[in-house]
Design a protein around this nucleic acid. Structure first.
Length: 312
DNA sequence: CTCTAACTCAATG
DNA sequence: CATTGAGTTAGAG
């Protein structure tokens, strides 16, 4: 019987909390989840974590705070709830380059200044949220920093996203492979040493031996990469009614124009942009400008977007 | 074997 | 729920 034995179920999956968390985040349509959903992702597919929740959840939270690769994003005002959202820093996408989901080559650490900048922006974002709420309650706020969108650019070259193991491995229907520990690897000293990467693991003929995989499988299907903007209508926790845009006068210095927020891919495409938009862009009013400083987007659009969304 | 990422425990806000 | 620190464990090279 292929079914994972009870014993198997109770074995600790050979993934670090970091990679488990990254998987959870990546599996979500918005690439961004509240803590509770991260917990759920893990317990849903790893029976091992259905016990001792206090213990591992504390460790997980530790990791979220400790590692710069995780960014805590304030909730947007139109989406009330408890806890912030957690997402991956764009530069952390290839954290697992070496293919190991157990231990990274090196820790992802932001340079102090980058971190400061990011934090300032997140703070500004939180401010926007407060302002928005104040606004709704009829409280007067100072006039702002509205900037209109830039004129459309000619079509830009398509940018390729990094090939991230995490990214590639998360598909609701794929089983999550269990990497061998070093000891185990030694044991099968039988040959072919292919690079141990998720790509290779997934490439493996599925018909063969799937039963050493623990887990999974989920019902609902989400596209791996969402770059179409027709709003993600799925996702249990986030059925988002389109936010009502606040009057164009509610921004603080240092704030990103909230009402420009519906920068969906489609919208940008219509304006002549041809970019792969990070889901954060689609779903968040948050958008720290540092997101635009990385080679994540083509240089021209980087600059363009940066200068137009940039805080004053 | 060494280095250091990952984990645990625990205090604090 | 989030942050921080200190001490331990264990993978990678």
């Amino acid at each position: 019987m292929p079914r994972p034995s009870r014993e198997q179920c109770e074995q600790k999956p050979p993934y670090s909390y970091i990679s488990l968390t990254a998987m959870a985040i990546w599996s979500s349509p918005e690439k961004m989840l509240p803590l509770s959903d991260i917990y759920r992702f893990i317990t849903d597919r790893f029976p091992y974590y259905r016990k001792n929740t206090q213990r591992w959840q504390n460790s997980l939270r530790h990791n979220l705070s400790f590692n710069d690769c995780f960014i805590k994003v304030p909730r947007r005002p139109d989406r009330p709830g408890k806890g912030a959202y957690w997402t991956l820093h764009p530069q952390a996408f290839d954290m697992f380059e070496n293919g190991s989901l157990l231990r990274r080559r090196r820790r992802f650490k932001l340079k102090k200044n980058d971190k400061d900048v990011l934090n300032e922006e997140l703070a500004a974002l939180a401010n926007i949220n407060r302002f928005f709420l104040a606004q709704q309650q009829g409280i007067q706020v100072n006039d702002g920093y509205y900037q209109s969108l830039p004129p459309p650019e000619p079509t830009l070259p398509q940018h390729q996203l990094v090939n991230s193991p995490i990214r590639n491995m998360i598909s609701p229907t794929t089983t999550i492979p269990i990497p061998k520990t070093r000891r185990q690897k030694q044991d099968l000293k039988t040959k072919p040493k292919k690079a141990f990467t998720i790509e290779n693991l997934l490439r493996k003929d599925k018909s063969q031996t799937n039963n050493q995989n623990e887990i999974i499988d989920v019902d609902d299907s989400e596209p791996l990469v969402t770059s179409n903007s027709t709003s993600p209508s799925h996702s249990s926790t986030i059925s988002t009614p389109q936010p009502k845009l606040p009057p164009a006068s509610t921004l603080l210095p240092g704030a990103i124009p909230f009402f420009q927020y519906p920068h969906t891919t489609a919208a940008l495409n219509q304006m002549g942009y041809d970019l792969p938009i990070h889901p954060l862009l689609m779903m968040n009013p948050l958008l720290p400008s540092s997101y635009f400083q990385h080679n994540y987007y083509p240089p021209t659009s980087q600059n363009q977007l940066q200068s137009n969304l940039r805080l004053v």
